[in-house]
Design a protein around this nucleic acid. Structure first.
Lengths: 174, 174
DNA sequence: AGGAAAGCGCAATATTGTAGCCAAGCCGTG
DNA sequence: CACGGCTTGGCTACAATATTGCGCTTTCCT
């Protein structure tokens, strides 16, 4: 697997006109704020890892991050990356996608939340949805069998709006 | 990870009174029927793997199956197990739980379906739910952003009814 | 300043899953 | 039956993902 976005411009998102640099800056700003508010330490390493996760809206593998760090002149080992990811996930700044063994930046880290993810199998972009409505449905189904729901994973594969509109790229080959 | 059910009796399911042997026989019968109807070959190996998956209602890891096969006198290598699992999943006889990297027998293989899974973090039993209602919700949420949903993963962690009722076991330690 | 905790570099190893090659078995046709 | 093609699965090797454990450094708190 590669960081597909590693060298690309700012046109990777479903929204044609979006300047991805803004996303990155916004994410880092929010991360600073979240950590300040909660007394968490966004160390340089963690910040770099977060920035790398935000290189695109595609999910990124842990070993992609390792490679990217190496290219930047670090010489990290797997635990380094996993520890940074653990922190970022714990802080709600990054989500893990279990169906892909990959990681993606969180849109709205200010308040903790559970999410659903729409994963485009063409461009691989991930769209994060709030799940208040779904959450209710899940809980009522679980209630019917007396199950006390705590956490969930909801990941949907499909094709995003942009890829449906003619510029359908060949399915990601990894 | 171990096959927690490997040596246990028939009391592993949320339903206190259930005789698990019936589950196993039922699963195997249905598998025979499904394969007969669809012209698929339920070979001895595949049958054994299916039976092992059905040793309990807990999800089972691929390497647990490998160990169990070894104990039965086979000497399988990983590809053997994964090929059998691939077949069983393809045939709708087994589901993969992405959040656990584990596999569980399908309740209702007669018709293909997507499911949701309620995974008890205490006894590790998995309850499979039909998701017709949820599916509609997911699609309508996806529609709002023009996303064409194809497949989904919905896995809920929590505590099952039985474990809530006093005989709460310590959380699984793997 | 001094002690406790957190961060992280590093080596080794665990866990999960695949690729590729070949032999053995099944199955339809001549 | 004999042949040829397909599926199955045994085997080696390896890839991809993730963790454990140790110890040194940095940071935080008092």
């Amino acid at each position: 697997m590669l960081i597909a976005s590693y060298l690309r411009g700012a046109d990777g998102m479903a929204d044609d006109t979006h300047d991805h640099q803004v996303c990155v800056e916004n994410a880092l700003e929010q991360a600073e704020a979240v950590c300040r508010d909660r007394g968490l330490r966004l160390t340089p390493l963690r910040r770099v890892v977060l920035e790398l996760v935000w290189q695109g809206h595609e999910p990124v593998g842990a070993y992609d991050l390792l490679d990217a760090l190496t290219k930047q002149g670090h010489s990290p080992s797997p635990p380094t990356v996993y520890r940074a990811l653990d922190f970022l996930i714990q802080a709600g700044l990054v989500h893990r996608l279990d169906s892909l063994n990959a990681y993606v930046g969180c849109n709205a880290p200010a308040h903790k939340h559970e999410s659903a993810f729409l994963i485009c199998r063409s461009c691989r972009n991930v769209h994060e949805l709030g799940v208040d409505k779904i959450r209710g449905q899940i809980e009522s189904l679980a209630d019917e069998v007396g199950f006390a729901a705590e956490e969930h994973v909801l990941e949907v594969q499909g094709v995003c709006a942009k890829c449906q509109q003619g510029n359908l790229q060949p399915a990601a080959s990894n």
